[in-house]
Simulated assay, not measured.
Amino acid sequence: MRLIVTSLEDDKAEEVVVIDLAGKAAFADRMVVASGLAGRQLTAMAEHLIEKLERDGRRNIRTEGLGASDWVLIDAGDVVVHLFRPEARAQYALEKMWGVTLPGDEARFG
């Protein structure tokens, strides 16, 4: 987790949130959600993270949306990373779905 969070923070990701899914979901033990301000930033964050995970020995990393403008998914096995532009992140509200409340969410989600 430290490698993932550090990589995202180094690339200026905003509102990095780690959600513990152990015992709640079969597809992963943890989910990381973060925001980037532009599609190019999301792509760069994803590419840098994938490189670091591969150097760390992770194999079979799958991605969806790489090069798209709003959302990139990185499936690293026991950890799934969602990188969003702020508007898409608010629309999908993954944190809310998994019961995580962020500062300011009360006003945003009512």
Rank of each mutant, 00 (worst) to 15 (best):
D78E: 15
V72C: 10
E47Y: 02
A88T: 15
G65N: 04
L42E: 03
L66V: 14
A22S: 14
G77D: 04
A22T: 14
A34L: 05
E47T: 13
G36Q: 06
H82D: 11
A46S: 09
D78T: 14
D29S: 15
G65L: 08
R55I: 06
P86W: 07
L37D: 15
E54A: 13
V72L: 09
A26T: 13
L49H: 01
A34V: 04
E87R: 15
I61M: 04
E51N: 09
G36C: 08
L73Q: 12
M31R: 03
A68S: 15
V33Y: 11
L42A: 08
V72K: 12
V81G: 05
L73D: 12
H48F: 00
V81R: 13
Q41N: 09
M31K: 05
A26P: 07
V81Q: 11
R55G: 04
L42H: 08
L42G: 08
A88H: 09
G23R: 05
G67H: 07
E51I: 06
G77E: 07
G36D: 07
H48R: 11
G77I: 02
G65W: 06
D70V: 06
R62H: 05
F84E: 02
E87F: 11
P86T: 12
H82F: 11
G36K: 06
M45Q: 14
A88E: 14
A22K: 15
S69R: 15
Q41T: 10
W71I: 11
R59E: 13
L49M: 05
L73H: 10
D29N: 15
L73I: 14
D75G: 07
L66D: 00
D78S: 15
T63I: 02
T43I: 00
A28E: 06
R30L: 03
R59S: 09
G67Q: 08
K52I: 04
L53Y: 01
L83Y: 00
D29M: 06
W71C: 11
T63N: 03
H82N: 11
V80K: 06
Q41L: 03
L49A: 04
N60R: 13
L73P: 13
A34W: 00
G36W: 05
G39N: 01
W71M: 09
G23I: 12
R85P: 07
W71G: 11
G65R: 07
D56N: 14
A38I: 03
P86C: 04
R85K: 13
E54H: 08
V79L: 02
V32D: 09
I74D: 05
